[in-house]
Design a protein around this nucleic acid. Structure first.
Lengths: 337, 337
DNA sequence: CTGAAAGCGCTTACAG
DNA sequence: CTGAAAGCGCTTACAG
């Protein structure tokens, strides 16, 4: 039956489209008789106006884009949940993209968002965009988008000019490492991504800060730097565990790394806490529920998603306000030391 | 600077909008000189046409809606990932909604999708819509949407007329239970949601089928029916474990239930496989990686998401084709019996 | 090959 | 209070 349009309603009610539009929007006074007649027809035909046409006429959009690098990672799932809950309350609709940590997909998503003329976007960049070419490409893209952007969790140098919300990872890593030190550990290892990644540098710095503070030498032989994959972390952890001189405690720099580490532990017949102590960044829900004794830095991604959407709404209302960077604290959850 | 429009380009190139449109769409031949001139200006001004305006003119949309009940559950995260990967390849864009298993939010999402005149939608209904009133509301809503719908994972009676993709849960539960029987278990428990939920009935039936097949009486005292929450499952499992006459093996009917069970096990100082054997529906990634010995039915949600999007694309191409129901097989992963 | 016009489904001044 | 007209940013016959 195709979609009912405002013209159908107008014709049937014997009024102009303008009048129908007025009853739809309560924008001006309409005679109560005609109003009721029009409303009755609208109800009967189950008509509601096309948001697309409406937005075209208004010249604005009620769509917000969101790009995340790993949509099936619970961290980003929670981010989405938080963002979506606030969007709902503000009549904003989410257009979702998964970049897979891949710059090309990121570009494509950005391009699509531009072509939809979305109102704003929440964005976790796929990569650090380190090479000057990448940097140029992505910068041009975002600039041509010309909409409010809120960065989430990652802040590549190319994006310093945008609002953003981040976790205090440096501080958290400091505190986690400190907890281990205060528990008597002197040989503390770290499994992290390589330091050409912004977030990895920040996390490494927190670890280092704590060692320094307590006069423990920073020793590269306890540092295992690779990527954020389970597989790589597993290899690194295995290597670590098989060494004579191995750490008595470890910090692991994201949930995948923690899993790789735990897997290695398991395969070496070692027990968490019993044989080697660990504090990981980000919870692993199943392990926590099951009571595995896995310690972790609890980053509240739902909160980040909510706040990010609120920041976006604020930015849309005040386009010229000063750039805002928000930092979220995390709590360290110790299950077994 | 506001957005560049086709009019800006036309003016600057000294041609009509129609001509610009033609170079944009390669729809008709354009003199190569004017073409190049126009293209140069487009490039210089970083212009690309508004998808919204374009779709309005075409009378179609390239947006696909997707409604899931729990966006931060890894199962649905993977569903999204799968759907999004296929959408990408077909120039379709995803509008995402999280219904939180809540009928009202479901209605609202449906309404928004209608107003956006989306092209089609992927849908996991928030509830079973059992009461006739709910059923009526949701049916009207979807009918007035008048677009292709692909159901995913859940098939409330109200939606029988739509395409859908599901897992062979009955068969999987049968096989899981059978594995336990063949391993010598006679007292096999089940923790499930209450049987007023469609999926719970299906899963329960599979369990029952296996018992019957092997002449083991179906005994209600081994059946714990509640909801799909960790907390409820935990209470049920604790109760079960404290009984004199308790099962020697259990099937758990979703990932939350499995976690509740494992938590109870842990708190009763019991070991998986050692004290009581379990096969759960859906993997729990962390437990699997860490080598906990948790057995499970592996449902491939990424595959479901991909297939669902393919079915939608097919349906959009062939609106009158026969209704299609697809059932996906799952594999049983045994880590320790 | 190219432009003027009409149309997609709305909204908003402007008259009356 | 209400309608005719113009406009949002496009596309597509229709002429020429």
């Amino acid at each position: 039956m195709g979609n009912v349009t405002i013209t159908d309603i107008a014709r049937e009610a014997g009024v102009s489209k303008a009048t129908v539009s007025r009853v739809l929007n309560r924008s001006a006074s309409v005679d109560s008789n005609t109003r009721e007649r029009v409303e009755e027809i609208i109800r009967r035909k189950k008509y509601s106006p096309s948001t697309v046409a409406r937005n075209l006429a208004y010249g604005i959009s009620s769509i917000v884009g969101i790009i995340v690098p790993e949509i099936d990672n619970p961290f980003f799932g929670e981010l989405l949940r938080g963002a979506s809950s606030i969007a709902d309350k503000n009549d904003l609709t989410l257009m979702c993209f998964n970049s897979d940590d891949n710059a090309e997909k990121d570009y494509k998503a950005l391009k699509t968002l531009k072509d939809y003329r979305v109102r704003g976007m929440l964005y976790t960049p796929a990569t650090d965009y380190d090479t000057s070419e990448q940097r140029k490409t992505v910068t041009k893209l975002i600039e041509s988008l010309d909409i409010p952007v809120i960065l989430m969790d990652r802040e590549p140098a190319a994006f310093e000019r945008y609002d953003g919300i981040f976790f205090e990872d440096r501080k958290s890593m400091y505190e986690a490492t400190e907890k281990l030190i205060l528990a008597g550990h002197k040989k503390i290892g770290i499994i992290n991504a390589t330091l050409d990644r912004g977030l990895a540098r920040i996390r490494q710095a927190g670890y280092r800060d704590a060692l320094e503070k307590y006069d423990i030498p920073y020793d590269e032989k306890y540092c295992y730097l690779g990527d954020y994959s389970v597989a790589q972390a597993y290899r690194h952890a295995s290597e670590m565990l098989e060494k004579e001189d191995r750490p008595t405690a470890v910090v692991t720099c994201n949930n995948n790394i923690s899993m790789g580490f735990l897997k290695a532990l398991q395969e070496h017949d070692m027990k968490i806490a019993g044989d080697i102590v660990c504090i990981g960044l980000d919870k692993i829900e199943a392990l926590d529920i099951v009571g595995s004794g896995f310690n972790y830095i609890r980053r509240d991604a739902i909160e980040m998603g909510k706040k990010a959407m609120e920041m976006l709404i604020h930015r849309m209302a005040f386009p010229t306000a000063a750039v805002q960077k928000v930092y979220l604290d995390s709590e360290i959850v110790i299950r077994k030391l």
